[in-house]
Design a protein around this nucleic acid. Structure first.
Lengths: 198, 198
DNA sequence: TTTGTTTCCTAAGGCTATTAGGCAAGTACA
DNA sequence: TGTACTTGCCTAATAGCCTTAGGAAACAAA
């Protein structure tokens, strides 16, 4: 603001967290790839260079958004699954993933952003793994079958949502929701009849 | 080359196809995101601006690499599956995907690059869908179940390879190969026992 | 040889990420 | 209230990227 000669520098009052949160919203609006310091600065009402007081660089910004998404997803998942077991728990967990992917496509992509190993190790990713194992306890799968099943479920959740949000199933019948319901049904059947040869 | 005063402009002899092919190799080496006109020009021994005689822009370059990958994958898949049916066909198709993802991580990512709808419609993507349906014929699944199963298989292939190449299963036991084998086994069982309620 | 086409070049524009240095707005404290 | 310290934000500058424009040299056809 400029009153005559006196320039008043009003502050936007940003913090790292607020910047990252704005970045997450931007990812949902425009896509995770489009999240860039320049665009984000515009959204925050600040010059580009000013972002660098809060975030080290573009890569760290993306990493932070990824961590935020992982945490949000883990929180949603554990709430949704609480008190449920077996089929109900499986369906609840699966739906958390798909709903999140639909509501927050940018964050969902962010959640699959490749993290540095030591960053990943302390992220909410480990909570996801624990949760999945907890659910599988209702299916009576001993190791190593349980791990294999965890990997299958992870693949399906991430793969289905990925294909769906890439437009793979749109404009083709039957409805994606129908497929999703039936696939979950099938996975439940499969976990019960999991083959344990050898 | 510069002989005294006479400058001889040797030609690199590039074509669109050669540029795209070099781009695909570059994607495998450095990652699909890192494929950029500047870097690719260096690889081709040419100034950056010269690439634009062969490719419209960076986005089209990526699109072409994606189309190349889809075609390669479809070719490999139809050869691998030829003459097989049921479980054998399923396993062959699945392995083509995983092997390709391991051998050509950049191209595999490219294959999931979001294409414009009309580009996708004339791409080798449709061959993939046909192939998958052909395999499912051995499992006696009527519509709409067949479509649901196609979508599940697509999710697993893309999801598993995605997680694996993102490092999701490395440094943790059991071996990824072991999981993969068992998951395919499980999918075969599932397709046989596919639930058809209502 | 002449003519036309294509491949490559240099030059230049505009955009992005990032760093450096400075001022002014908040904050803690006398 | 004044003073000093910290920090959010600025302007300015650099380097790197994508892309276009225009020209010259290499190739192909006649």
């Amino acid at each position: 603001m400029d009153y005559g000669n006196v320039v008043i520098m009003a502050r936007a009052g940003l913090t790292t967290e607020r910047v990252v949160r704005a970045g997450a919203e931007m990812a949902d609006d425009l896509g995770f790839e489009q999240v860039t310091p320049t665009e984000l600065a515009k959204r925050c009402g600040v010059k580009t260079a000013s972002l660098y007081s809060h975030v080290k660089n573009a890569h760290e910004l993306k990493t932070e958004i990824a961590l935020l998404a992982l945490t949000e997803l883990a929180d949603l998942a554990s709430t949704a699954v609480a008190g449920l077991a077996g089929r109900d728990a499986l369906i609840a967990l699966a739906n958390v993933h798909r709903d999140y992917a639909v509501e927050h496509p940018g964050r969902f992509t962010a959640a699959r952003f490749r993290l540095a190993p030591e960053t990943a190790a302390t992220s909410a990713g480990v909570r996801h793994a624990r949760l999945m194992r907890a659910i599988l306890r209702g299916y009576d799968l001993a190791e190593p079958h349980q791990t294999h099943a965890v990997r299958l479920l992870g693949s399906v959740f991430s793969g289905y949502a990925g294909l769906e949000s890439a437009g793979g199933f749109s404009h083709s019948s039957p409805d994606s929701q129908e497929s999703w319901t039936e696939i979950l049904d099938a996975l439940d059947v499969l976990l019960r009849a999991w083959p344990r040869r050898k």
